[in-house]
Structures are given as C-alpha cells and as structure tokens.
Amino acid sequence: MSVISIKEVSKIYNPDKIPVKAVDKVDLEIEKGEFTAIVGPSGSGKSTFLNIVGGLDNPSSGAVVIDGVDISTFKESALIDFRLNNIGFVFQSYNLIPVLSSLENVEFIMLMQKIPKEQRHARAIELLKEVGLEKHLDRKPSELSGGQQQRVAVARALASRPKFILADEPTANLDSHSTENLMGMMADINKKEEATFLFATHDQRVIDKARRVVTLEDGRIVKDEKR
C-alpha cells in the first residue's frame, strides 16, 4: 500500500472572483522508502502541492490519503495531531525554536507526543548522533552553522517516527559542502530506516540524489521519472 496517495487533487484560489488553479487534478502514489523530488519552475504549484500533501492546507477537491487515512476533510485540530504523529517537516530556513538547544528542539516534538522524559531524551541523543551532532547537543540554533541547523531539523523531523518526511527546499540556504553532507545523510537515513522522503526543490544536487523525480508545471504533473 502507498504511504501517500493523492487522488485528483485540485487547489483553486479565489474560486468566486478570479479563480487561480494552483494544483490541477493531480494523481500521485508514493511508496514506503521512496526518495522523491518534486521539481518545477516558480509558480508551478510545488509549494501548494507540498502544503496539501503535508496537511498544512486543504485541497479544493480530491483526496489526500496518508497510510490509508483520508486527511483532506480533517478539521484543523485533527490535522495538527495527524501531522505531529505522521509527518516530519524540514523547512528551507531550518525553523528551529531559537531559545531551545539542539537536544531540546528534537525533544520538543516528543514532548508533544507525551513520550516519557527518559525515552525522548535518549531518542533525541540517538538522532543527533545519527546526524553527526552529538558534540553540539546543548548549542542553541544561533550557535550552529546553517548546515548544522538543518541537520537538527532533520533529526527533529525523524523524532516523531513519521510515515514520511516533507522537505521544502531544504538546501536553498546551504553551501555546496553542507548540501552534499545533508543530502548524503538523508540518503543514508532513507536506506537505513526505510524513511520516505519527499522534497520540493530547484537544487540540481538534490535532484541528482533523488530516485524519483516528479515534475510539475502549471499545477499538473508533466513528468514522473523513476531512476
């Protein structure tokens, strides 16, 4: 069974005035363990599509089925809980909580999942080791480089043991070296833990690492290439 099943999803802005179709009847199936890049020019609907897949936005029509659950009709509060327990997010600007240390940022997600303190502490340390930041557990985001912050963000995304991880332009603010490191690390996690990754990106270095590339144009899938 697919982890993500998108069925005839459309998103229309201003439906009553001047309708703008950001996503137009898209169908997509993502299997467990995929490492997929969504690509396309600016305005192609990548971000809107990712927001809908991630449960940040509701589609105007169609169904978004995650691990067998249709979330397209969920109310806000239910969606928040669903995201917490099923989807990991990695954002372009890292978006760590600035006043918490690396360890606390990773633990925070598990705190909301009501995981006991000892367990979440141990898992946060384990994840930060996995992303190579075991020496920076107590550092605040402002004391880390961009690449290191993005690694913490990946560890945070993995902390809740999600069904898949959504990464929106994860390397946009990173230099080549950091991009190489981050993508290598995510690819390793993808293989080792069979974690499913879905990226929206312009970055060719990310596209090169992807095993499947879905191209969007004008809100429609124009190409779906498996490697």
Partner: peptide, 15 residues
C-alpha cells in the same frame, strides 16, 4: 512565522 512553524510540526494552538 515561528508560531506557523510550530503549528506545522504538530503543536496545537492551545499549547
């Protein structure tokens, strides 16, 4: 923006 991110990653608004 920070509240948006926190809500996105699963923090209920009441929290």
């Amino acid at each position: 923006y920070e509240f948006g991110v926190m809500t996105a990653i699963g923090t209920q608004k009441l929290r």
